[in-house]
Write a protein that binds this DNA or RNA. Sequence first.
DNA 1: CGCTCGACTGTTATAATATAACATCAATGC
DNA 2: GCATTGATGTTATATTATAACAGTCGAGCG
Lengths: 162, 162
Amino acid sequence: MAHPKPGFPEPEHNHGVCVADALAAAAERCAARGARLTDIRREVLEVVWSSHRPIGAYDILADLGRDGRRLAPPTVYRALDFLLEHGLVHRVASRNAFFGCPSPGHATAVELLICTECGSAVEVQEQRVSAAVAGAATRHDFEVLPQTIEILGRCAACRAAA
Amino acid sequence: MAHPKPGFPEPEHNHGVCVADALAAAAERCAARGARLTDIRREVLEVVWSSHRPIGAYDILADLGRDGRRLAPPTVYRALDFLLEHGLVHRVASRNAFFGCPSPGHATAVELLICTECGSAVEVQEQRVSAAVAGAATRHDFEVLPQTIEILGRCAACRAAA
DNA sequence: CGCTCGACTGTTATAATATAACATCAATGC
DNA sequence: GCATTGATGTTATATTATAACAGTCGAGCG
Ligand SMILES: [Zn+2]
Ligand SMILES: [Zn+2]
Ligand SMILES: [Zn+2]
Ligand SMILES: [Zn+2]
């Protein structure tokens, strides 16, 4: 069962499905690429997916350390590097944080809509945005690299609450 | 004399003109808004404009400290906060750096094309990008905030060199 | 003038994010 | 067994950013 709807997730949705889907997709992608999804890497990915909000490396570290383990920053950063390299998470520069990619290996560029109030985010693929960016780049003799465009704003829930 | 061309600046252009224009525009804007462009703020802006590359706060600090002065980080960050508040510089999240705005007070959203090889950047206003972003936001019931979209890639000069 | 107020800057310390460098360990293939 | 490789552990440090409070300085006012 795939994630029921596009757009910002419903507050009441069954998030376990999101996590299970993400872990399954990650395992599949790693197998296909001959990459090892080790325990630590899987656990980091699971923490990243514990919400639909980009999460900082040190928050991941704190979460993994809750059961008495003492991990050091490099352990988490190395796992994140691996996950980034294989397209399983996105780096969110505007927040110094990381966000689980719901469609690892997507062919086209993606955009991230990030709510500055509640911190939640959603990955979208908007052809028109990519096309406009590509057009702008061409006009300025610029070669666009594959990347995640970050768009900051307010989600519907936060707007409704205000 | 305004900056001669849009797009990435020619290597040989008269950069003194860029700096002079930027400082004049800043002074004018501050006067119009009743804001005080103090010595430190003007000096920080000048350092930001010393190249067409986004520059980090600590690099600004080092530059200002070259003539024997010893400034502390808060001094620079406060000046940058002021310049950000009045639209005289942009924060470049993807590089933890700051970039001089060539058109302070621009009504519409702007995009920043950033070369990952040479580090240089250019601010552009692409209607189609803003429109596409606005459209995407609408479709996802998302309210876009004013911001600078960062687009990473390779400039023509770096492509030619490779 | 002497005073007060607010904006600006100085100073010290520290928080938050990220990486360098080297040691250890485990699996794999010879 | 033993070298090779990739993964993790460990310690220290680099880089970016802010908190908190003290001093300065000029504008306005009695
Ligand atoms: Zn979910
Ligand atoms: Zn929100
Ligand atoms: Zn110039
Ligand atoms: Zn370049």
